[in-house]
Simulated scan of single mutants.
Amino acid sequence: MGRSLDELIAALPAEEQAAINARYRDLKQEVEGLRELRQIAGKAQAEIATALNIKQPSVSKIEKQADMYLSTLRSYVEAVGGNLELVVRLPARAAIRLQSLGDIGSAPVSGKSRTHSRTKSGAAGKLAAKAG
């Protein structure tokens, strides 16, 4: 009969057990997507829909999106009872927490005017170009 994972870990040196437990705690804090975040918060799609003033099928659609406006993501996170923080990590620099994107979404980028005033979460290149 084979040994269980717990038995294998128990046979390792204490330092390795501590490293495994630390990594387990880190992984446990990560989530795969918005659906899992909502489930961890103990909320149903209908509750989120009510908080966002939309219909339940729209919540399902949001949870399946790969790209969305930051404002949509912020509203969703707040509806599950959380707070969205945006952190930028640059090489050889400490992490930078952005409080707001300000007027970036409404300012012209590369001389072209924008058709909407919100910045998509996938617009990191435009944000970097504006900063540079």
Rank of each mutant, 00 (worst) to 15 (best):
residue 119 T to N: 12
residue 103 D to T: 05
residue 66 A to T: 10
residue 81 G to E: 06
residue 72 T to W: 07
residue 116 H to K: 07
residue 91 P to T: 09
residue 88 V to Q: 06
residue 93 R to V: 04
residue 81 G to N: 08
residue 95 A to I: 00
residue 101 L to Y: 01
residue 99 Q to D: 08
residue 98 L to V: 03
residue 79 A to N: 09
residue 68 M to T: 10
residue 112 K to D: 15
residue 106 S to E: 07
residue 119 T to C: 12
residue 118 R to M: 05
residue 81 G to V: 07
residue 89 R to A: 08
residue 65 Q to T: 05
residue 113 S to C: 05
residue 102 G to M: 06
residue 108 P to R: 03
residue 101 L to G: 03
residue 92 A to D: 02
residue 114 R to L: 05
residue 115 T to Y: 14
residue 70 L to C: 11
residue 79 A to R: 06
residue 81 G to L: 06
residue 105 G to P: 00
residue 79 A to C: 08
residue 107 A to I: 13
residue 108 P to W: 03
residue 124 A to Q: 09
residue 107 A to W: 10
residue 120 K to D: 08
residue 114 R to G: 03
residue 68 M to E: 03
residue 90 L to F: 01
residue 117 S to H: 01
residue 90 L to S: 00
residue 101 L to D: 03
residue 115 T to V: 15
residue 105 G to K: 02
residue 91 P to D: 13
residue 99 Q to P: 01
residue 92 A to F: 03
residue 93 R to Y: 08
residue 69 Y to P: 12
residue 115 T to E: 15
residue 104 I to E: 02
residue 117 S to W: 00
residue 118 R to C: 00
residue 107 A to N: 12
residue 102 G to T: 05
residue 67 D to M: 13
residue 122 G to V: 10
residue 103 D to N: 05
residue 97 R to N: 00
residue 115 T to I: 15
residue 107 A to H: 12
residue 123 A to N: 08
residue 93 R to W: 08
residue 96 I to E: 07
residue 64 K to R: 13
residue 82 G to Y: 15
residue 106 S to D: 09
residue 88 V to P: 02
residue 70 L to R: 07
residue 77 V to C: 15
residue 98 L to S: 03
residue 102 G to C: 04
residue 73 L to T: 04
residue 83 N to G: 04
residue 98 L to T: 02
residue 104 I to Y: 02
residue 87 V to M: 12
residue 122 G to Q: 13
residue 112 K to I: 10
residue 120 K to A: 09
residue 74 R to F: 10
residue 119 T to Y: 12
residue 79 A to W: 04
residue 84 L to K: 15
residue 87 V to R: 14
residue 116 H to I: 00
residue 110 S to E: 10
residue 111 G to D: 03
residue 64 K to N: 10
residue 114 R to T: 04
residue 70 L to V: 09
residue 70 L to N: 09
residue 67 D to L: 15
residue 118 R to H: 06
residue 91 P to I: 07
residue 81 G to R: 06
residue 118 R to S: 06
residue 117 S to M: 05
residue 65 Q to Y: 09
residue 111 G to K: 04
residue 124 A to T: 12
residue 64 K to C: 06
residue 115 T to C: 13
residue 93 R to K: 14
residue 93 R to P: 04
residue 71 S to I: 07
residue 90 L to I: 01
residue 112 K to M: 15
residue 89 R to N: 10
residue 111 G to Y: 05
residue 94 A to L: 05
residue 72 T to P: 07
residue 107 A to V: 11
residue 114 R to N: 05
